[in-house]
């Protein structure tokens, strides 16, 4: 199980499994540089592998005024 917290929507999602960050981004409809993908204080690149039990923070970067 992977837990994903999305900012600034303050939404928490859970997924059974995603192999990579890129797969997770596609699932959420995000392009590669639409958001920071954060795990444990580090940024992840699209090819980074996700593991069972991961807690991922997604911080969308587009400012809306």
């Amino acid at each position: 199980m992977i837990t994903v917290f999305v900012e600034p929507d303050n939404e928490t999602l859970t997924f059974a499994r995603h192999n990579t960050v890129l797969m997770l981004q596609r699932r959420l409809g995000l392009r590669v540089n639409d958001a920071l993908i954060i795990r444990g204080g580090r940024l992840l690149t699209p090819d980074s592998r996700l593991n069972d039990g991961d807690e991922i923070r997604i911080r969308k970067v587009m400012s809306t005024g």
Binding site: V32, N33, T45
Partner: peptide, 8 residues
């Protein structure tokens, strides 16, 4: 290991 990917 990279942390920032810049396709541009």
């Amino acid at each position: 290991p990279a942390e920032v990917s810049l396709p541009s």
